[in-house]
Design a protein around this nucleic acid. Structure first.
Lengths: 154, 154
DNA sequence: CCAATATTGAGAATAATTACTACATAGGAT
DNA sequence: ATCCTATGTAGTAATTATTCTCAATATTGG
């Protein structure tokens, strides 16, 4: 619902990016910077190809593979996460706060939501038996209000 | 955890299958019967290719495409569901009870679990604003006890 | 500034899934 | 029970997302 990605000045953004690169021990390259900017500012859970198309405006020579590789790097550094339950492509998510997902099966839009009660709830007793959970996510699929209205028109 | 797929006699299985086909208005074919049997009895969330390999023992001429199409048919008829958040292939799930998933990121095994408290909990108030939910699932990723033990040996 | 090393772009490769087509078959009408 | 037609099937080819290879290039610690 609320999607308050941090929109900061280019200088701040660049400083943040340098810090991140230092932490992850990866080199600062123009490609990575643009991908970082793009994905951090994205509100719509873009796919790798979406990111590629947006970045191409500023770096026309960039390759799709670089985007894939960079997103994977950012993912393993914990800067973004990967959402793969949508029907087709993998999509990327810069939201670092604990959150959950609403997926509209008609327009394929993905929306974040927060649910503190769930986050704090005790897991069922069989989980510790199973092993060691690292992440827990709720995924709600349905039809968003917009698509539902469109559908009722027809 | 507990995976009590109904293991019934072949005759019962066949009767059930005929009923299902009648309901869905699809033809009874040997291919569909074998796929039905296989997937209903599966305890491990098989991929389309897994199902294909199992069915081939009984129907050596079957094509992978038929398996894909049949699984899609069964899915739209609500007989099985599709789990696509695993890293690679889509996997299929014959469990019709409300349930959730544990995914081991090491061995890629997928385990069902039940959580009535979650199923009955009220959703956060922003959901009705968003639209009309149809399904809600919890997905827990982590390391299962078995893999954790293996890892500690090394 | 330079050398060591990581990263990139281009195109090819891989893997999962779907489309197409000609033939076969199930099952309702007769 | 048999015929007819819609539907399903196998085989092959296409598509789509993603990853690999490798030579050329860029980055950064010293």
């Amino acid at each position: 619902m609320t999607q308050d990605q941090s929109h900061q000045s280019p200088e701040e953004e660049f400083r943040l990016f340098r810090t991140v690169c230092k932490e992850q021990r990866i080199k600062v390259t123009p490609q990575r910077l643009e991908i970082f900017r793009t994905v951090i500012a994205a509100y719509d859970h873009p796919s790798a190809e979406d990111v590629y198309n947006r970045v191409k405006d500023r770096l026309p020579a960039i390759s799709l593979d670089t985007v894939y590789r960079t997103l994977a790097t950012f993912e393993s550094g914990g800067i973004i996460s990967r959402v793969s339950f949508c029907e087709d492509k993998t999509r990327f998510d810069p939201n670092r706060k604990p959150h959950h997902h609403l997926f509209c099966t008609v327009c394929k839009n993905l929306t974040d939501f927060y649910w503190a009660n769930f986050d704090n709830a005790d897991l069922p007793p069989e989980i510790p038996e199973w092993g060691y959970p690292e992440t827990k996510h709720v995924q709600i699929r349905g039809i968003c209000s917009h698509c539902s209205r469109e559908r009722n028109k027809a």
